[in-house]
Design a binder for these strands. Structure first.
Length: 424
RNA sequence: GGAGAGGUCGCAUAGUGGUCUAGUGCGCCGCACUCGAAAUGCGGUAAGGGGCAACUCUUCGAGGGUUCGAAUCCCUCCCUCUCCGCCA
């Protein structure tokens, strides 16, 4: 959500920001229209309510003095007023509801440093780390390597749950488990994050808080109890502090949490779906920060570096790109994507998005902090980034470290977790 | 899943229809006393909305209802605790 005062006082600035994202600016006008009416009705309601309270109080006093008749008279006075109050209240509720609907749909504004652009073709490369591996043989894609060593079975996954679900087997299952264990340990030990292990299910309020609802319900798996499987640990972790006021001295708060993630990927069928490239259930370590507004952009650089650090520890070639305004999506103000080089597939694979949401999520989830004793609470800035998603990392490791004989030599950092030096 | 007890302004508690504009204690902040501190005393200590302001409205888990008036009565839901049942 955006600041109401900003919308009221600088609607043009808001329109300009939304236009940079190539999104619809007409919601701004809808907001202003409803807001004006809402405030008018609200102030009328408040006056009528005050009058009502005055009379009610006087009735109480009259009753106390035993003046029954006068009390009855006052009761008569309230009748019309009461109707008026309930009519106004109904109007106010309706307007409030409409206003909230519009607010939840309004996108966040891009930060001034976010580059202009229309889509992913306009995303500048910020930096590149390492070199692409060279092979004196034709590097295989990870699905072929996996098949040779029976690391996972897509057909079995499809039989059990459906297309896009994976059954990992044997050493393949162990590698899967090793990857997220390694990453969560790494973030906690080297980058100072507090480890959390969240529920895999969240309620509506939590998903509205992060901005996944109401807009993206079709992307989520939903239970019959109106609960949802989480699409990312961002949802439960961000909502740890929903409706709370944090102490400014405790900021920046840093959480790292592993979870399974569930995404319907509706509409994405057929696109980049081979092997582990796009699956409905995957594992991920998520990094979430709650920061002071004046520090959030430094924290974004740090967050991105933290996500990168695991890739460096594994010796993988990657690049950092910055999302242009048009590719940023509704929620973010500024975002870096990490893309991992996948020599078998022959492309960079998106493996992490590190985003500063500023106060967009904290307004939705009502997460504030008190800068100092006695000062007014303010909305915190919330940032998150994958640290990182497992399946594409899995793919890149198999492909990057494959040998001419078909075996895969594991990066040193992983060996204690897998228990072997190589696969095959 | 069954039975019972609960959810009050950071924490703990009081409040069972009308000065509740929610009391008290602890904690916290300020002032006084003090060389300084402790102790003590006095004062202040929830959030949000509207208004230039005086002021005013909303919120006692959430939502609805009864009433001129609800923390208090009724209904639905959520959550916590105790016991029983079931069970990784």
């Amino acid at each position: 959500m955006l600041d109401r005062d900003l919308l009221r006082q600088h609607p043009d600035a808001v329109r300009a920001g939304i236009a940079r994202k190539h999104l619809d600016t007409s919601l701004v006008d809808t907001f202003l229209q409803i807001d004006t009416e809402y405030r008018r009705v609200r102030s009328e309601t408040s006056d009528a309510q005050a009058e009502m309270n005055r009379i009610s109080k006087s009735i109480g006093a009259l009753m106390g003095q035993g003046k029954k008749e006068e009390a009855e008279q006052a009761k008569g006075q309230t009748k019309e007023l009461k109707d008026r109050v309930s009519t106004l209240e109904a109007q106010e509720r309706e307007l409030e509801h409409q206003l909230r609907e519009v607010e939840l749909q309004l996108p966040n504004l891009p930060h001034e440093t976010t580059p202009n652009g229309k889509d992913e073709n306009d995303n500048p490369v910020v930096r590149t780390w390492g070199e692409p591996q060279t092979f004196d043989f034709q590097p295989q894609p990870h699905w072929d390597i996996a098949e040779r060593h029976r690391l996972f079975d897509l057909a079995k996954g499809a039989k059990i749950a459906g297309s896009g679900f994976v059954l990992y087997t044997g050493l393949g299952a162990k590698l899967q488990r090793a990857l997220f264990s390694f990453m969560i340990d790494f973030q906690a030990a080297h980058n100072g994050y507090t480890e959390v292990f969240p529920p895999y299910i969240s309620n509506r309020a939590s998903l509205v808080g992060t901005g996944n609802l109401p807009k993206f319900e079709e992307d989520l798996y939903k239970t019959t109890d109106d609960l949802f499987l989480i699409p990312t640990a961002e949802v439960p972790i961000t909502n740890i502090f929903r409706d709370e006021i944090l102490d400014g001295h405790d900021l920046t708060i840093k959480f790292a949490g592993y979870s399974a993630c569930f995404r319907r990927e509706a509409g994405a069928a057929g696109k980049d779906t081979r092997g582990l490239l796009r699956v409905h259930q995957f594992d991920k370590v998520e990094l979430v920060k709650f920061a002071k507004p004046e520090e959030s952009y430094n924290e974004l650089e740090g967050l991105t570096a933290d996500a990168e650090s695991v890739l460096q520890a594994l010796g993988l070639h990657y690049r950092v790109i910055e999302l242009c305004a048009g590719d940023l999506g509704a929620k973010g103000a500024k975002c870096y994507d990490l893309e991992l080089w996948s020599p078998g597939v022959g492309r960079f694979l998106e493996i992490s998005s590190c985003t500063n949401f500023e106060a967009y999520q904290s307004r939705r989830a009502n997460i504030r902090y008190r800068p100092a004793q006695g000062e007014k609470p303010q909305f915190v800035h919330i940032l998150n980034g994958s640290g990182v998603a497992v399946p594409r990392l899995y793919a890149a490791i198999l492909e990057s470290f494959q040998q001419p004989d078909g075996s895969v030599i594991l990066p040193e950092a992983l060996r204690p977790y897998v228990g072997v030096d190589r696969i095959g």
